[in-house]
Amino acid sequence: MSATALVQTAALGKRAVVRTARQPANVVFPLVFPMLLLAVNAGGLKAETRLPGFPTNSFLAFALAVPFVQGALIATINANVEFARDIQTGFLNRLALTPVRGIVLLVGQLGGLLTIAVAQAIFYLAVGVAFGVHLQSGFGGAVMLLLLEACIALAFASLGSWAALRTGSTEAVQGLFPVFFVFLFLSSMNIPRNLIQADWFRWVATVNPVSYLIEAVRALVITGWDWQTIGLGFAVAGGLSIFGFALATHALWNRLERT
């Protein structure tokens, strides 16, 4: 990527961040809602730690992985609703009329979203630590966790960008939220997979990629350097990112049918 393209990408990323920062609802909701759900689940499901084979005594530590995935989902939806609005209002056309390369438009958008997701992750981590969660993987684990969060956010963001570019509709992107939500709830978010009693649910959680994202984050928090689980999380996030990015690039190509 040339220096000009880098500057352009940074400018577009900055715009995405500024736009989010200037909408209090888009700042507060992704920070507060996952924390509320964490509080609810950490309180309501604390009894689960008394199940034989449960991996930790702290349900808060166990559940802390969920906000990381959930926050990335919310950031994705918010940012891509704005992206779809750019298409609806013609803002994307304005950018397309400049000499900027198409891929820069996409990478800039994703870059902004990643920045937001990582900032949110730092907040979740701080709240967890403030409430007594001890990161088993230490400071290095925290850095690795943020890296993993960036990969997770990229995976969701590229899929969200694909939806925005494919449909150009804010409603369609908002419609993704329940879909993502279903994936989240049908995962191992509330209980380790080996402790799921219903066979069908265990099977669904096993084939659900979100389980592996949560488990990788969770490993860094409650287990330590469990390379297999962490590696699997990165692989799933990376695979989804590549898949989503390919789809988004194709959709961008079609959307910007410019010559």
Partner: peptide, 28 residues
């Protein structure tokens, strides 16, 4: 070319100066 298309495609959350900054950057 320069173009002002039918929709005044602007970002409501950016200032006028920030729009110009972004647009100039896109033009290098």
């Amino acid at each position: 070319i320069g173009a002002a298309l039918q929709e005044a495609a602007l970002d409501p959350f950016l200032t006028g100066r920030e729009h110009l900054r972004l647009q100039t950057t896109m033009h290098g």
